[in-house]
């Protein structure tokens, strides 16, 4: 099993954090993982993306060129990366922010109004977790079972009071149809 995940959006949407949670999720399941952020003058407002690989084999290149999974949270990133998604791969798009109808044979596109759902939950910053939850619904159930542990490892101690609400957002995404 190898999932090559690209998470892309605006800085401030929790792009890097979402990736970090996935990397820890791989780690708690004894898989090989790598996490590579875009860095530089990209925080808050600019584009941000992060490459995560989870695999049962040692990871060669940490760069995700053609993702098996694209979690995408703004239109520019969607336009930029949609054509790179591997055949049979998944796109998890925040349809609150990406109002484009697009489909391609062999690509599973999931449109989730994540930002809107997150706002209804009281915190629009949870949109990343909602999309992550939807992605977990396409994976082995063991990942959903261990996501709490992964979050406990990836949330800094000063933010630990947000653990429950993050878990709720993941569940909401997981159950969204």
């Amino acid at each position: 099993m190898t999932r090559e995940i690209l998470i892309a959006g605006f800085g401030g949407q929790g792009i890097l954090f979402g990736g970090k949670a996935l990397a820890y999720l791989g780690m708690v399941n004894n898989l090989e993982v790598s996490w590579l952020p875009s860095y530089g003058p990209e925080m808050r407002g600019g584009t941000a993306n992060c490459h995560v690989i989870i695999s049962d084999k040692p990871i060669g290149s940490p760069i995700v060129v053609s993702p098996t999974d694209l979690i995408v949270m703004n239109l520019p990133s969607f336009e930029k990366f949609k054509k790179n998604v591997a055949k049979g791969g998944n796109i998890f798009a925040d349809s609150s922010l990406i109002d484009k109808v697009w489909s391609r044979k062999g690509i599973n596109k999931y449109d989730i109004p994540a930002t809107q759902m997150a706002s209804e939950m009281g915190n629009s910053k949870l949109a990343n977790m909602i999309l992550l939850g939807k992605m977990l619904s396409t994976m082995d159930s063991v990942f959903m079972e261990t996501i709490k542990k992964a979050l406990e490892m990836s949330i800094p101690p000063s933010k630990m009071h947000l653990l429950d609400i993050n878990l709720k957002a993941i569940e909401a995404g997981f159950n969204y149809n």
């Binding site: 996490w35 590579l36 940490p62």
Partner: peptide, 10 residues
């Protein structure tokens, strides 16, 4: 290089 410095692995 910048990639090695910024990337995270176990």
């Amino acid at each position: 290089d910048g990639m090695l410095g910024q990337m995270m692995e176990p």
